[in-house]
């Protein structure tokens, strides 16, 4: 039996990747299951999906807490989430990153494979969707399933969702990533803080459950406390503002769904500040600017 935990962001297709891997393993004569972690996640927020593969029938229905392999679709997640939590010591991490395995920090030194799946995806699909490319890296790094089975798995799962033509492009992404995967060992110098959650006892629980704005050891809670939630890591592209072209019409400021654009200064010195720690990189500001003063860059 081997167990794989996928870490991605909502919209990156971690669930489809988990299913395609299960299909690949199944086509090699194994039993396999794939399932997501259910939560209130939105596109861009960290999510998980799981694949469990065995020669025999699988009866375990739990989430995977001690995976043999972790697959990370977005290396920026490694700074936010302890993706290697519970990963077996002889396990392996497969990571979408343009860095060498030796430069990856997971808080645990384990076998590690990297591939720049985002670039592969942009080249092969024209979109930064890495869920197919990363499976090529999985095949190369682990040798547990052949690249041909991965291709078959992608054709099966992606094919039924997005059609044969697009599925074939995704299968190609996996093949390209297969060739570009490097394997090594990652670093394990940093320690991840166990993320706590504010759990009030009954005396702290406000009447009618209306939380007041409060600082707790776990951070802000109550009205306005989402300011603590830095959503900027969700983005692939970031806005770059050219103040020389800008006429301070405020359209971008108005439209930004994340309130990431602020006006600063007075009179002629008035300009815009882009708070990239919140910006999700949607590109609305660049699309709506009447003076073309904003460009989205990777």
């Amino acid at each position: 039996m081997f167990e794989v935990r996928f870490h991605g962001r909502g919209g990156q297709g971690a669930v489809m990747a988990a299913q395609a891997l299960a299909s690949a393993a199944f086509q090699e004569g194994n039993y396999a299951v794939a399932f997501p972690y259910f939560g209130a996640e939105r596109r861009g927020a960290p999510v998980m999906a799981f694949t469990r593969v065995d020669k025999d029938k699988i009866f375990s229905k739990t989430l995977i807490y001690e995976p043999d392999y972790i697959v990370v679709l977005d290396d920026k997640l490694t700074g936010l989430v302890d993706v290697a939590d519970g990963l077996k010591d002889d396990g392996m991490a497969i990571i979408n990153s343009n860095a060498k395995p030796e430069d990856i920090e997971l808080g645990k030194s384990v076998k590690c494979a990297t591939v720049d799946a985002t670039t592969v995806a942009l080249e092969t699909l024209g979109q930064p969707i890495t869920n197919s490319a990363i499976l090529g890296a999985f095949a190369k790094a682990t040798g547990l399933v052949s690249i041909d089975s991965i291709v078959a798995g992608i054709m099966d799962i992606f094919g039924s969702r997005i059609g044969e033509k697009l599925a074939a492009k995704n299968a190609n992404a996996a093949k390209v990533a297969y060739e570009r995967t490097s394997v090594g060992t990652c670093k394990g110098t940093m320690t991840y803080e166990k993320g706590g959650k504010w759990l009030p006892d009954y005396k702290e629980l406000p009447l009618g459950l209306a939380t007041r704005p409060m600082k707790t050891p776990e951070g802000l809670v109550g009205p306005g406390s989402f300011v603590d939630n830095k959503t900027g890591s969700w983005k692939t592209f970031a806005p770059v503002h050219d103040p020389d072209k800008c006429i301070m019409c405020r359209m971008c400021w108005f439209y930004c769904p994340d309130g990431a654009i602020k006006e600063v200064g007075e009179g002629d010195a008035k300009t815009l500040e882009f708070h990239l720690e919140y910006c999700k990189g949607c590109g609305i500001c660049a699309n709506e600017c009447p003076k073309d003063a904003i460009k989205m860059e990777r």
């Binding site: 861009g44 989402f226 300011v227 019409c249 108005f254 919140y278 949607c282």
Partner: peptide, 20 residues
């Protein structure tokens, strides 16, 4: 749009999908 107050009563850090 010009006279809309700066102050945010619905803050950044909410978890809507990008571009919502």
């Amino acid at each position: 749009i010009k006279t809309l107050p700066e102050e945010e009563l619905f803050t950044s850090g909410h978890t809507a999908c990008g571009g919502c």
